[in-house]
Computed example of a mutant assay.
Amino acid sequence: MREGAHPGRITPFPAQNLSSEATRALGRPSSDAAGRVGRKITTREPIIQEPEAFEPEATRRAADVTESARANRGWWDRNADEYQIEHGTFLGDDRFVWGPEGLDEVEAELLGPPEELKGKDVLEIGAGAAQCARWLAAQGARPVALDLSHRQLQHALRIGGSFPLVCADAAALPFADASFDLACSAYGALPFVADPAMVLREVRRVLRPGGRFVFSVTHPIRWAFPDEPGPEGLSVSNSYFDRTPYVEQDDHGRAVYVEHHRTLGDRVRDIVASGFRLVDLVEPEWPAWNTSEWGGWSPLRGNLIPGTAIFVCERD
């Protein structure tokens, strides 16, 4: 079994919420995903998790596809409970929020007008507790929520929703070609993979002709600044062009969290090289109503420099 896999067979949860094409697609990975399968989420375990027993060391160093996937799957499994407790109120149970600024899909309509989502097969990548998928279902769409972290999807199961939850790697999607009309990812997968083009190619493969993929990531300019919400986060401290991954590692030098930097140009080139057409790039402005801080995001910084970049892509 290849790195990044979870044992078990991919099955819909429940199947009747998928179109016939998407239902048949489950359990049929692409040829380059052989041996990498998903895991059905079936248990409503208590949301209790032990804290990490060590303080990881933060550094900048190389981290390949395998190490990044292993580290981030483990990090999200360990920290899913704390993440949902800290940010669950902001995210809601069934809102579609694109980032810490609070841009809502109800207003943005980056996937299209809500009334046109009815009956569409939609894949959410890096779904976490599937808040976005839950909103899509409420519009009459047929979502599938996919995440690398089993623990995150247990939160999705806890909150509820009658749509499939799939635990799998975004770089090896376990669906047949042309299974979905739309795909979306709000800060999911793309910031954490060493080869984002692998994910983009997989997303394009499972989209039908004319399908749209919209994804949000930390705005690349933020990598030049300290990740601090106050005034100390307003002075450039790193080269924007330094693409060395940010890595947190344990006492043995094993990565326990990895995040990868791509410049704005890198993102555009990845999108185009993967066969997509970039139709819009949205940089949400910080709204007056949002007085909250989220990590390095804050009203102070949000009013001066962008914090999120949203790429709207279409498959011809």
Rank of each mutant, 00 (worst) to 15 (best):
R2Y: 08
E3V: 13
P7R: 10
P7S: 10
A15S: 11
A15H: 06
A15C: 03
S19I: 00
E21Q: 13
E21A: 15
A22Q: 15
R24F: 13
A25T: 06
A25G: 15
G27Y: 11
P29V: 11
R39H: 15
K40W: 09
E45H: 14
P51T: 15
F54V: 04
E55M: 12
R60K: 11
D64E: 09
V65E: 04
N72I: 06
G74W: 00
R78Q: 10
R78L: 02
A80C: 01
Y83H: 14
Y83F: 14
E86D: 13
E86W: 08
G92T: 14
D93Y: 13
D94H: 13
R95E: 00
F96R: 05
G99N: 11
P100W: 02
E101V: 00
G102L: 07
D104H: 12
E107Y: 08
E107R: 15
A108Y: 00
A108K: 07
L110I: 12
L110F: 02
G112E: 01
P114Q: 12
P114G: 05
E115G: 08
E115R: 14
L123H: 08
E124I: 02
G126Y: 01
A127F: 09
A129G: 15
A133E: 02
R134M: 02
A138M: 12
V144H: 11
D147R: 11
Q154I: 07
H155E: 10
L157A: 10
I159C: 02
S162F: 03
F163K: 07
V166S: 05
A168R: 04
D169R: 07
F175S: 03
A183G: 14
A183N: 08
Y187H: 13
G188F: 11
G188Y: 04
V193F: 10
A197R: 10
R201P: 00
E202W: 07
R204Q: 14
L207S: 03
L207E: 07
F213K: 01
V214Q: 01
P220A: 11
W223Q: 02
F225T: 03
D227Y: 11
D227G: 00
P229R: 14
E232K: 10
G233P: 02
L234I: 07
S239T: 09
F241M: 07
F241C: 01
V247M: 06
D250N: 13
D251S: 08
D251K: 11
R254V: 09
A255C: 02
E259Q: 12
R262A: 11
R262L: 10
R267F: 14
D270V: 14
S274V: 03
F276W: 05
L281P: 01
P284M: 08
P284I: 10
E285W: 06
W286Q: 01
W286V: 01
W286G: 03
W286P: 04
W286L: 04
A288P: 00
N290V: 09
S298P: 01
L300Q: 14
G302F: 10
N303L: 10
N303D: 09
L304E: 08
P306D: 05
G307R: 05
G307P: 12
A309D: 03
I310Y: 07
V312K: 09
V312T: 12
V312F: 05
E314A: 05
E314I: 03
E314C: 07
R315G: 00
